[in-house]
């Protein structure tokens, strides 16, 4: 499987993501700069974390309106998988590729710590490396990860198995409704999550719980 990592100015976890993809798949991903006018032929597009455009207007809002996002939207509609982590998740919600919004953390502070995640839906290409109900460790590092959607949207998400990960064992770090840490689109081809599985893939990270997400995605 071929992957591309998209870089908007101000993103800063692209190096972590490139390292994770390279270490797990054995192949370096394409790196797409935001001014590029075409996307390479890939099976997976990753929007990594950071502070695109400084998060100055609203996290992810400016990147979501860039011309490159239009190309990503077209690919997503054709079934290419799209993964957004942290700022990438915020960009995907701002772009309307995923439901809901990510508000400022309930504490109003940036939070970087390890949390527990429950794998809610393990029957997707993203999550099939985990068992349903499995609890995994994963770090978070964000200021705006407080997932919010209206009651109808939340109900639809739950009914349609679109919740990918939930903060577990009382570790919700940001006030997200329904403890939501990551969601799919309706067809389960787009996943956005606030935690950073790319920062827990090897012994040096103190664990490898994040690895299965990438190995499942990149194995195909």
């Amino acid at each position: 499987m071929k992957a591309a990592i998209v870089v908007f100015p101000g993103l800063n976890r692209e190096r972590d993501m490139i390292a994770a993809v390279t270490k797990i798949s054995g192949t370096a991903p394409f790196v797409v700069w935001h001014q590029d006018t075409s996307l390479p032929d890939v099976d997976l597009i990753v929007i990594p974390g950071g502070f695109s455009y400084g998060d100055y207007l609203r996290a992810g809002a400016i990147a979501a309106r860039s011309p490159l996002m239009q190309l990503i939207r077209e690919r997503a509609e054709s079934g290419v998988k799209v993964l957004g982590v942290c700022n990438g998740f915020q960009i995907l919600t701002e772009a309307g590729l995923l439901p809901g919004v990510l508000m400022r953390n309930a504490s109003l502070r940036f939070v970087c710590r390890e949390v527990k995640l429950e794998v809610v839906n393990a029957s997707t290409d993203f999550t099939r490396g985990y068992a349903e109900g499995q609890i995994i460790r994963c770090p978070v590092a964000h200021h705006d990860g407080n997932y919010f959607a209206d009651a109808d949207t939340l109900k639809a998400l739950e009914d349609n198995d679109q919740v990918a990960f939930r903060y577990a064992e009382g570790t919700n770090p940001n006030g997200s409704l329904h403890d939501i840490a990551g969601v799919f689109n309706r067809t389960k081809t787009v996943l956005g999550l606030m935690p950073h599985p790319e920062n827990l893939i090897e012994a040096a990270h103190g664990g490898t719980d994040g690895r299965a997400l990438f190995s499942a995605l990149l194995a195909a």
Partner: peptide, 27 residues
């Protein structure tokens, strides 16, 4: 305090705050 700092970005922090010293592996 230190939970407001990103202590693991770059993926090389092998000892984070709370110990005697922070340790970062050489990429």
């Amino acid at each position: 305090v230190y939970e407001q700092y990103d202590t693991l970005i770059q993926g090389n922090s092998v000892q984070r705050p709370g110990g005697d010293a922070g340790v970062v592996r050489i990429e």
